[in-house]
Write a protein that binds this DNA or RNA. Structure first.
Length: 958
RNA sequence: GCUCGAGUGGUGGAAUUGGUAGACACGUUGGACUUAAAAUCCAAUGUCCAUUAGGACGUACGGGUUCAAGUCCCGUCUCGAGUACCA
């Protein structure tokens, strides 16, 4: 009987769906295990073979954990809000909800494109997902809770004393009792001190304005990254090398009133938490860099002839006596005020010139040193000497205070600046030559020429400097973080609407019982003519506070302006939330998707806890993975979650690259040469579709001629009657014609082959090229496996109750041991090899024993579940193989009585010798030395030494 | 520039604690079966020298430690990823 994988796979996929085989229960005596994939954005292009790699790995692990007796939660869903659907909507006029649905469920869009649908593609691969828990972030039932979390963040502040987020009401009552002086909160820099009496005398609007400076999500005019091409603002992590991550469009700085998330409040806990989770060191390092913690001091320099002080942050307060000038960012607010009339022209010209340079130019051009003297002087806090104040664009407005105390002897940038403008470079290091470059080695620092710091090493000097600064009121120890608050508004349509309306310009939250606030219908998915976001086009987009519903804008008081809302109807927020909003908590929603109101009951939260294993790409290192951790910690603080970290262990799968096929065309002609002949001509490489090329890199000329018109009348120079193409490894992309569709692979070889081959390609975390040619190896293995169970007459199913032989048992148990170790270490590629070896050995042994064939199937089931189910069923089982227990390894079957010792001479293996394992060193030496081959290799030399490691090796030295 | 990771046959890769380098596959070559092809099966396959027996070399490069190094140490080169005036 032949291995009809298509029939078998369809049959078992249907069985799993019909029987709810992989439905996870929220109550179980078994230990829980939560395996999660980063959910996909359902794009119209569908999946290529690179996408399911991580899903296959997590599926193997999930299935393995089930066999090991765990209650496994393995859900899947869609991150279905986002830019591509909206861009497509702008182009085609289709509602993004429609195209998103087609992209997930399959169908034909109104452009006539046939879309396979993510769900259909995923189903073909045979994943053990519990689809009853599916989430879609664009589903109102889902984003209701995204909106709710937003309101919770709004109604919270961060108390540094308790080191957690608290309800805003505790802050309000503290203000009413004692003002804000003793409040130790994370808040905006510009809050002023007020007393309880002052607070109580403020109008409601004044109070609300102050509270916005404390809330964990807040409305503020901030300088944002505006991308004109996309018509929206972007978060820092959405910008790569000064251009937008999506599309590569230029980004400019612009002041706008936007919602922000006070993630900076969690900077320290986000760093500390990394020590408690099992993630790769590289991604932890990425997060640490992004958060950018630096410990140092704030120092104030009093300006001469001005009341203001310049505050600077420094990590080297120990070098304070080395300060010979200060530099402000050109955008610094004091620049205008302190510039002297003589310098005014030069300063203004400089500011003008730098503001014209884009972020990108500034980054590309680090070498050029530029700056201008303001004419102003500050006073050194200790020496009282005048310190000239310069401006320079090497100081960034966005980091620290936008000003630095320049210590040219200890900082290369300050050094270069001082050299260029002939500013003195006082040396504050003992025994260090600074005539060539600055000296920045903290460990080797001994301070000199620095009054009370003389002779001290780095650590002590820092401590003493801070102590003295505090004593004279000129500074204090401070830890600074690079992490900025995250802008949370997007001027887009296809995102979560904010549950916010405005009364007299002040934001008001819509209560949970009235959520979700659903996206309104609009005509066109573009900004309005006067520049408002797309939601500005909605006619029914106002909040009626009497009915708590969204109503027509016409119901806002017709007089408009300041007296809006006289009817209790107010305008709703026009921005939507960013792409990362929905993905910041989706792993929680999977824990229960059955409740009427969509809430996740506490029992489910407590039972599943955090994700035990998270698999996904490392490209989300500074976005999704940071925001999810932030929201988890926040929800933890507010008592909604018991866990403090969302993802306990994470594995980042490597990218699967395409192996492009290149045909070589002789330059200036329409003649193509086979790859072996290309060096005889001047040629250019033309990408051709990899799906037309066979395993030997040959292509049929007729196929190529029919592929694209340009080949129709082309000439071909063959070698040995064959036309061979070149190969190149590059990113899998339509552009290079190297995309391989998993559906095609499933049809031609089967899902089990696809699954095993993806695992066989190489280590999970490593980037590796896909080459369909190699798939026959894995496919042949599955065919061999099938024959192992069909050894009867006419290849009918055949399994016997005969006792297994010693060799059978040895093969089986060796396999159990290796496969179990491999899965635990996520070394899936080596376990596929192990199966092949086991298959080959058992075939050689002509094993038909049920006692071997049954456990073998269980081992293979996580990798090739369909064939395993089919054979398991044929063996007489009525339950799914996923209910079976994982076989137990027994050492006794592997115990050997002898070892094939390698015999080396001076470390080089020359021959092997089979010897009993219970031989002592002396016995081994005796046999080896007496062996004729030893004498042959030794010749007339006398061995100096014989190294014997029993059970391992013999090495004869001499 | 800095941080991290990686360099092993024609190709993907294996070697988990220093102990037989190249498992398992792909590809290639030869053979069996077949009218033929496909499928299947068998054998060979790191490089070089040699008719064989066998020998030499070999894990990016140069050193070192060790009886023994792909593995440990020092230096160099190349590639990839992240980050980039962070005070």
């Amino acid at each position: 009987m032949k291995y009809h994988f298509n029939e078998i796979e369809a049959k078992w996929q249907k069985y799993w769906a019909d029987n709810g085989t992989f439905h996870a229960s929220n109550t179980s005596d078994k230990p829980k295990y939560y395996v999660l994939d980063m959910f996909p954005y359902p794009s119209g292009a569908g999946l290529h073979v690179g996408h399911p790699l991580g899903y296959i790995a997590s599926d193997v692990y999930a299935r393995y954990k089930r066999l090991k007796g765990f209650n496994v939660l393995h859900p899947q869903g869609y991150d279905s809000f986002g830019l591509p659907a909206e861009q497509y909507a702008i182009q085609t006029g289709q509602h993004p909800a429609t195209t998103t649905k087609v992209n997930i469920e399959g169908g034909v869009d109104n452009q006539g494109n046939v879309i396979a649908g993510y769900r259909n593609q995923l189903d073909k691969i045979g994943f053990s997902f519990d689809w009853s828990r599916e989430v879609r972030t664009s589903d109102p039932a889902y984003y209701k809770w995204t909106q709710w979390i937003f309101t919770e963040l709004y109604n919270a502040w961060y108390n540094n004393d308790s080191n957690k987020a608290e309800g805003i009401d505790t802050l309000v009552s503290a203000f009413a009792k004692a003002g804000n002086e003793s409040i130790n909160a994370v808040c905006d820099d510009d809050v002023t001190i007020f007393t309880a009496d002052e607070w109580n005398a403020y109008t409601d609007k004044e109070q609300q304005t102050i509270l916005l400076k404390y809330r964990l999500t807040y409305l503020a005019e901030t300088e944002v990254n505006w991308c004109p091409a996309l018509g929206t603002v972007l978060a820092n992590d959405e910008i790569v090398n000064g251009v937008s991550e999506r599309g590569g469009h230029p980004v400019v700085r612009k002041k706008m009133t936007q919602w922000s998330m006070r993630i900076s409040a969690y900077a320290e806990r986000l760093i500390q938490g990394l020590d408690t989770i099992d993630w790769s060191e590289s991604i932890k390092e990425t997060q640490r860099n992004w958060i950018g913690k630096s410990v140092g001091a704030m120092v104030s320099f009093q300006l001469k002839d001005h009341a203001e002080k310049i505050d600077v942050f420094t990590t080297r307060p120990d070098t304070i006596f080395g300060v010979s000038f200060m530099t402000l960012a050109p955008e610094h607010e004091l620049v205008e005020k302190i510039t002297t009339p003589e310098q005014k022209e030069a300063v203004e010209a400089y500011i003008e010139a730098t503001s014209k340079r884009s972020e990108r130019e500034r980054m590309a051009d680090v070498k050029t040193i530029s700056g201008v003297f303001t004419g102003a002087y500050a006073e050194h806090p200790f020496t009282k000497e005048p310190v000239p104040v310069w401006i320079g664009d090497y100081v960034l407005a966005g980091y620290g205070t936008g000003a630095v105390m320049a210590v040219p002897c200890g900082d290369q940038r300050d050094y270069d600046f001082a050299k260029k403008f002939d500013i003195p470079i006082p040396n504050v290091f003992e025994g260090i030559d600074i005539s060539e470059e600055a000296f920045a080695d903290k460990a080797a620092t001994v301070i000199a020429n620095s009054d009370f710091l003389n002779g001290l090493k780095y650590k002590k000097a820092v401590k003493l400097a801070i102590y003295e600064l505090e004593k004279i009121g000129a500074g204090t120890g401070k830890t600074n973080y690079r992490l900025r608050d995250a802008v949370f508004s997007r001027q887009r349509y296809w995102g979560e609407p904010f549950p916010v309306y405005y009364v007299d310009g002040m934001p008001q939250m819509i209560a949970l019982e009235h959520l979700p606030v659903e996206l309104p219908a609009i005509e066109k998915y573009l900004p309005t003519e006067d520049g408002a976001p797309p939601l500005g086009r909605a006619d029914v987009w106002s909040w009626d506070t009497k009915t708590n519903t969204v109503v027509s804008n016409d119901l806002i008081s017709p007089s408009g302006g300041d007296v809006q809302g006289t009817e209790g109807v107010y305008p709703l927020e026009l921005n939507t939330m960013p792409g990362w909003a929905g993905s910041s908590w989706y792993f929680i929603k999977y824990m229960d998707n059955t409740t009427e109101d969509g809430s996740v009951p506490k029992e489910a939260l407590d039972y599943w806890g955090n994700v035990d294993l998270y698999i996904g790409g490392s490209e989300h290192g500074t976005g999704h993975l940071l925001y999810s951790r932030f929201w988890t910690k926040f929800l933890h603080d507010r008592g909604y979650l018991g866990i403090d970290e969302p993802f306990q262990k994470m594995i980042n799968q490597g990218m699967i690259l395409g192996t492009s096929a290149i045909a070589y065309r002789i330059s200036g002609t329409n003649t193509y040469v086979s790859a072996g002949l290309k060096n005889q001509h001047e040629t250019e490489g033309i990408h051709i579709d990899v799906n037309m090329v066979n395993a030997s890199d040959e292509i049929d000329i007729e196929t190529l001629k029919n592929w694209q018109p340009q080949f129709k009348n082309a000439e071909f120079i063959l070698e040995e009657d064959k036309f061979v193409v070149g190969r190149e490894v590059e990113k899998m992309s339509k552009r290079w014609y190297n995309v391989v569709n998993p559906d095609d692979i499933c049809n031609q070889y089967g899902a089990d082959t696809l699954r095993m081959y993806e695992m066989f390609l190489g280590p999970l975390e490593q980037a590796k090229p896909w080459n369909t040619a190699g798939i026959t190896g894995v496919h042949n293995f599955l065919k061999k496996l099938w024959r192992l169970y069909h050894s009867g007459a006419e290849e009918a199913f055949h399994a016997t109750d005969t006792a297994p032989t010693k060799d059978n048992l040895k093969t089986l148990h060796k396999t159990i041991k290796k496969v179990e170790e491999d899965i635990e270490n996520f070394s899936f590629n080596t376990s596929v090899s192990t199966f092949m070896i086991a298959g080959n050995e058992l075939a050689t042994q002509k094993c038909t024993s049920r006692a071997i064939l049954e456990p073998l199937l269980i081992l293979i089931a996580p990798y090739a579940p369909h064939i395993a189910e089919e054979l398991w069923n044929k063996l007489g089982h009525t339950e799914s193989i996923s209910e079976a227990p994982f076989p137990i390894f027994e050492e006794k079957h592997l115990v050997e009585s002898s070892k094939n010792y390698p015999i080396s001479f001076n470390g080089k293996m020359k021959f092997t010798l089979e010897l009993p394992l219970d031989y002592t060193k002396d016995q081994i030496e005796e046999v080896v030395m007496a062996h004729e081959k030893t004498k042959q290799y030794l010749g007339d030399r006398t061995p100096k030494k014989v190294i014997i490691v029993p059970g391992k090796i013999v090495n004869i030295v001499g």
